[in-house]
Amino acid sequence: MNIALIAGMTFLGALGGFWFKKVSRVTKPVQKLFRFLLGCVFYGLAAILNIIVLHHMPYTIVFPLTAITYVWTFLLSFFILGEKLNGYKLAGLGCILIGTFVLVH
């Protein structure tokens, strides 16, 4: 149950960021606003889930687990935004995941 909550929370967080990124890819203000608000919905849902999770699990465990968000970020970047991934980016993500794991163990 906690794993599903964490997976859902992190995916929503990444989707929020994804739509914030998509704001920069259009120039019309209406389009920008629409994408920003869409991002806010996902980001807000992630935040609410975060608060709920924080009431069930310790801050020091929940906060680092949110790093899984960036695994989703890489998947969205690569498969949808068409961004290139390279060794430095993967090393960066790896360090962030390891660093957050070390933080709590």
Binding site: F18, K21, Y70, T73, F74, S77, K89, I96
Partner: peptide, 10 residues
Amino acid sequence: SFSVLHPILS
């Protein structure tokens, strides 16, 4: 890009 900047939130 998204893949560079978003993880920096960590």
